[in-house]
Simulated scan of single mutants.
Amino acid sequence: MQVDFQPFTIHKRFPLTISRGTTAENTNIWVRIQAEEIEGWGEASPFSIVQEGKKDTDKVIQELAQITPHLAKYHPLERQQIEELLLHNNISSVTRAAIDMALYDWLGKRADLPLWRLLGLDKSAIVPISVTVGINTPEGAKKRVRDWMELMDVKLIKIKLGSPKGIAADKEMLLAIKEEASNIPLMVDANGGWSLDNALKMSEWLAQQGVIYIEQPLAVGQEKDLFLLYQRLPLPIFVDESCFSSLDIPRLASCVHGINIKMMKAGGISEVLRMIHIAKGCGLQVMFGCYSDSSLSNTAMSVLSPLVDYLDLDSHLNLIDDPFIGAKLEEGKLLPNDLPGLGVTQKIS
């Protein structure tokens, strides 16, 4: 098989601020795998869990240049061997995600079936996506909610908290959003921006505000404190940055209620499926999330969406120059289409 790749830069309509900083653009990599006159597509979306803006795009390009010659001898159906090769060569999860995604897209196109149907999944089981409101002033947060409402039928709102200005600012922003969207359920993601003491204080207050769950209340490295929160928090706890792959799930299962799976953390569709099944086997709920992903990656996640409880797949909706067209918004749901493979096409400019 032949592997080609090219970087592309995408820009956010509204910059997103979380506890680690603000991001307005991202340079991703489009990966194309060809064999038997069929081309499968994947996307690498570099990210950082330490500091926004510190991305490893150059590393991904270097990895693809390094591994591409070794992939030439394989057929796209040899996913197990390809995965073992990538892991043996310490290829990052972002690069693995792009390659694995392209292999599954190729498979669906080879079978001339949408991947969701090939996997035997039920599109009617897909729940609505949430839309994200980043850290902002109260008035800025209200405006962002209105912007989302102009774009789509908003069913759920995820609010980024963990403001550098402290929990008083967090509370003020959340109350402003409640005022603007009084009938829409709210979730909270602190992105590790709280201390243990503030997480305990905020959880009690957020429960009184009717928030559904809290995501990543503590920073990576503070997982030992999650059990204390688990025992005392009145709200379900989800983890994101603390859970990269299926290997992380067993050690977290006794101190959280759910995990956030992202394609770029997991390393591809194969690992996403493993994580779902292991999490469910541990009695955990599952959420899908995204980084600065285009429609290509979010469509790949939408294909697997019938299997999960919450969906936070809105990054492509905030792009002014998304180069792809894929899953469609219908009544707040991101639904894969009936085209073969992932069902993604290139936008004609």
Rank of each mutant, 00 (worst) to 15 (best):
18 I>R: 01
19 S>Q: 13
26 N>L: 11
47 F>P: 09
54 K>D: 12
57 T>G: 10
59 K>W: 11
59 K>H: 13
60 V>Y: 09
64 L>H: 02
81 Q>I: 10
82 I>M: 10
88 H>Y: 01
90 N>L: 00
105 D>N: 05
109 K>Y: 06
112 D>I: 00
117 R>L: 11
128 P>H: 02
134 G>I: 05
135 I>C: 03
141 A>P: 02
145 V>N: 04
154 V>A: 03
156 L>Q: 07
167 I>P: 04
178 K>S: 09
179 E>Y: 14
189 D>Q: 03
190 A>Y: 08
194 W>T: 13
194 W>A: 13
196 L>I: 15
199 A>K: 10
206 L>Y: 15
211 V>L: 06
230 Y>W: 08
234 P>R: 07
235 L>Q: 07
244 F>K: 11
247 L>C: 00
250 P>C: 07
250 P>E: 08
251 R>Y: 09
253 A>Y: 00
268 G>A: 12
269 I>S: 13
270 S>L: 14
271 E>Q: 15
272 V>A: 10
274 R>T: 15
278 I>A: 05
287 M>Q: 12
299 T>R: 06
300 A>F: 02
310 Y>V: 12
312 D>H: 04
314 D>C: 03
330 E>D: 05
331 E>Y: 00
335 L>Q: 07
336 P>H: 04
344 V>R: 12
345 T>K: 14
